[in-house]
Computed example of a mutant assay.
Amino acid sequence: MTADTELLTVPQVMAHLKVGRSTVYDLIRTRQLASLAVGRARRIPTHALSDYIHRHLDQEAA
């Protein structure tokens, strides 16, 4: 698995963004952050987290 296809857990995304669990699930629910279901668990591809961060940086700069 390459770094681009690595899957992060919700707690890992929480740590990266410095936000709570409900915020991460809200981002997933509103489709601002792409994720996939692996059984009953949610996983977020690293590229989806990077895309989310870059979109918000671009919005802040505008």
Rank of each mutant, 00 (worst) to 15 (best):
M14S: 02
L57E: 09
L27C: 01
V10K: 03
H16Q: 13
H47V: 11
L33F: 04
A37L: 15
L49N: 00
I53L: 06
S22H: 11
A15E: 12
T23R: 10
H47F: 12
A41E: 14
R42K: 10
K18F: 07
D58T: 09
E6I: 10
M1Y: 08
I53N: 05
M14V: 01
A61D: 12
G20Y: 03
D51N: 12
L8S: 02
P11S: 01
D58P: 00
I28V: 09
L17A: 03
S50W: 11
G39D: 10
A34W: 10
I28S: 00
H54E: 15
A37W: 13
A48W: 00
V38E: 13
A37Q: 15
A62H: 11
K18C: 09
T23M: 07
T23G: 03
T46I: 11
H16C: 13
T46Q: 11
K18S: 12
T5L: 11
R40P: 08
R31G: 07
L36A: 14
P11G: 00
T30L: 08
T5N: 15
D51Q: 14
E6W: 07
K18H: 12
R31I: 03
S35L: 06
R42H: 09
Q32C: 04
R40N: 13
A37Y: 15
T5A: 12
P11V: 03
Q32K: 08
G20F: 03
R21A: 05
A41L: 14
A62E: 12
R40K: 13
H56I: 00
E6A: 12
G39Y: 11
R42Q: 06
A48M: 04
A15N: 09
A48R: 01
E60L: 14
H16A: 13
S22Y: 09
S35N: 07
V19P: 03
I28H: 02
Y52T: 02
G39C: 10
